[in-house]
Every structure is written in C-alpha cells, then in structure tokens.
Amino acid sequence: MTVQIHDGTRWHAVCTLDDLQPGRGVAVLLSDDEQIALFRDRSDALYAVDNRDPFSGAQVLSRGLLGSRGDRPTLASPMYKQVFDLTDGRCLDEDTAPDGAPAVLRRWPVRLAPSGGAA
C-alpha cells in the first residue's frame, strides 16, 4: 500500500505504509521550502501536517510524538513540547507563535492507495 499526499495540484506517492511506524512520523520533502510531517497512529489512521514547528521555526515536527488529549488525536513538538490537534492543526497550548502568526499547522490531504497508483 502506498501513502499519497495531495499538494493542492496532484497526489504524490511518498512511501509505503510499512515505512511508517505506528505512533511516529517521517519527514516528506515536497520542494525546497515545503516539508511535511507524516504520521501513522496505532489504528493506521494517517495525518500529514507542516513539518515546520511555528514556535522554533525548525523543520522538526515529524520527530514529535503522537498522542491524544481528550478524544482529539495530538502531536507534541519535540522542540518545546507544544501540543497540536491533528484534526484541525491548531495548537492546544498557545494561540500564537512568537512571530505573531497564528499557531496553526497546515493539514495536507493524505490517503492510502494500492501500490503504483499515483493519479
């Protein structure tokens, strides 16, 4: 099974499901200034969000830990440990990043497709 991410124009095959360890993420390079953090949880749900941590500016979110807060699936940044809601990308701990921008991660459509099928 191939994991595919949609960049707004088309689907990209980025890896196979086996490349993903439940509970952890990997980084995906779309272009020089676009990195995506891709996660698989233990029920095999997939999430794709910005790899850039708005609080440190570093491209590190793929190295964060998955979890839950209440019934929301979450991602904790490995840098300063802010927690993001994976369903809407919002930071649950702070509303704005140090640069004044809203602390919200862009979410990318992600799907599982039979191998070889990038459409």
Partner: peptide, 18 residues
C-alpha cells in the same frame, strides 16, 4: 537504521532547512 533518513521520499537529500 531506517529512522535515520532525512526524508522518507528522498533519503539521500540533505535537509535544506538546516
């Protein structure tokens, strides 16, 4: 060792952000 890839879809590419 699998985890030590910069990008799952471009393992040999250095992280351009670092």
């Amino acid at each position: 060792m699998r985890r030590f890839a910069s990008f799952v879809n471009a393992p040999g590419t250095p992280d351009p952000a670092v």
